[in-house]
Computed example of a mutant assay.
Amino acid sequence: MFAERQWLDSPSGARLAYHHQPAETAPRGILLLCHGLAEHSRRYEGFAGALSASGYHVYAHDHRGHGETTAADATLGSFARKDGPAKVVADVMAMRDLAAAKHPGLPIILFGHSMGGLIALNVATEHPQAFAALSIWNSNFNPGLAGRFAQGVLYLEQMLKGSDVPSLILPKATFAAWGRAIPGHRTAFDWLSHDPKEVDAYIADPLCGFDSSVSMWRDIFRLTFAGADPERLVRLPQRLPVYLVGGAEDPATNKGREIRWLGQRMLDAGMIDVETTVYETMRHETLNEIGREKAIGDFLSWLGNLGP
């Protein structure tokens, strides 16, 4: 179980709610965790426990507009009234600096799931020397023409009704469409996992599944298209260890194809230590899937093989 919630005042102006799971054995490193859209950090307790038992400190915070984090310019479902991407990046770096100060000398691994992966890659390319390794799970950096069309729709929504109200179009084009893509689905959120208990827990969680604002969707697409830009990827250290994970039944990443696309994109940018794994029977939330023990075990093996 995560330790009691703690607070950090970020330079961005946010009061970040975060959890720290201490290493249970001789510390080997720090994992900084970025959660996904319309969820929160506490959902990663099980994952944090496995890492803790293997000697890793875990720090997980609620992003702006999520969970228990508060900011004057960020209501639930919005990063900020302006400069949202820059502010969520600043928040991650504030957490990184906190963890580094508390555990000097330990390598820091940056981890992100889905939207958290979008944030993590943007953080890494803006601060390429700040992390010893990078891991991105279930993120789509390649929405293509559909993504550009969505940006146009969001611009029109903002012009017509403002930016701080929920988007009417994007939830239908993403969450709802992904839900319909699952044959014989029991709920609208079966695209998350085969495990009905995890799906039901998500639906019942008051801090999950909320409607994101027009501004947040616009910020998410900014992070998406910026993150895998070749001019940004070349900023990363050529030998930075990268571990990418997807699910072959995940409609949000085109059945894992976009994870493979990202891996190739990184190799094309000159990176030489990129490992990509797509699990055949998994949907979007690999860490909440049936068989997650295998995925977590594989990740721990990768961590164990990282150099000093």
Rank of each mutant, 00 (worst) to 15 (best):
A120W: 04
L121R: 14
A252L: 07
T253P: 10
L51Y: 00
R265G: 02
S52H: 06
L145K: 14
N140D: 15
T253A: 13
T286G: 12
D205I: 09
T174M: 14
L240H: 09
L76Q: 15
F149N: 01
F175Q: 10
G55V: 05
D83C: 06
I169Q: 04
A72I: 07
Y56C: 09
G147M: 10
D83F: 00
G84N: 08
S41Y: 03
V245P: 00
L236C: 11
N122F: 02
R265V: 05
P128C: 11
P22H: 12
E4F: 02
V274H: 10
P196E: 01
G144K: 12
A295P: 01
I259K: 08
F131Q: 08
H20A: 10
T224K: 07
A60K: 09
D195A: 02
G65P: 03
D9E: 15
A101M: 04
I296K: 02
W217S: 03
A295E: 06
A14Q: 09
V165G: 09
P206W: 11
F79H: 07
S215T: 06
M95E: 11
A248Q: 13
S193E: 03
H20I: 13
A150G: 03
N138R: 02
A248M: 07
A38V: 14
I203N: 03
T286H: 13
S114H: 12
S301N: 13
R222M: 05
L37C: 02
V92G: 01
L118C: 06
A3M: 12
D205Q: 07
Y59G: 01
R235C: 06
M115H: 07
D219Q: 07
R283C: 03
R222S: 12
G147P: 03
P11Y: 00
L145Y: 11
M271F: 09
R148Y: 12
A14M: 09
R43L: 09
L287N: 11
F149K: 04
P11V: 04
P27L: 14
P128E: 10
I272Y: 08
M266L: 15
L244D: 04
V88F: 00
P166A: 12
P27H: 08
L160T: 11
L236W: 13
D205K: 08
S301W: 09
S114Y: 12
A60T: 06
N254G: 04
L32E: 08
A38L: 06
V123S: 08
C208W: 13
N288K: 05
D195W: 06
E157K: 00
P143I: 08
T125E: 06
S54R: 15
S212A: 15
A181M: 11
P107T: 10
E275M: 11
V278K: 05
A90D: 12
M1Q: 08
T187F: 11
D62S: 07
S78P: 01
I182Y: 03
G209M: 13
H35A: 06
D83H: 10
K197E: 15
G67L: 09
H185A: 15
V278W: 00
E289Q: 04
A132V: 01
A14I: 02
S139G: 05
D164H: 13
K172R: 15
T174W: 07
I109W: 00
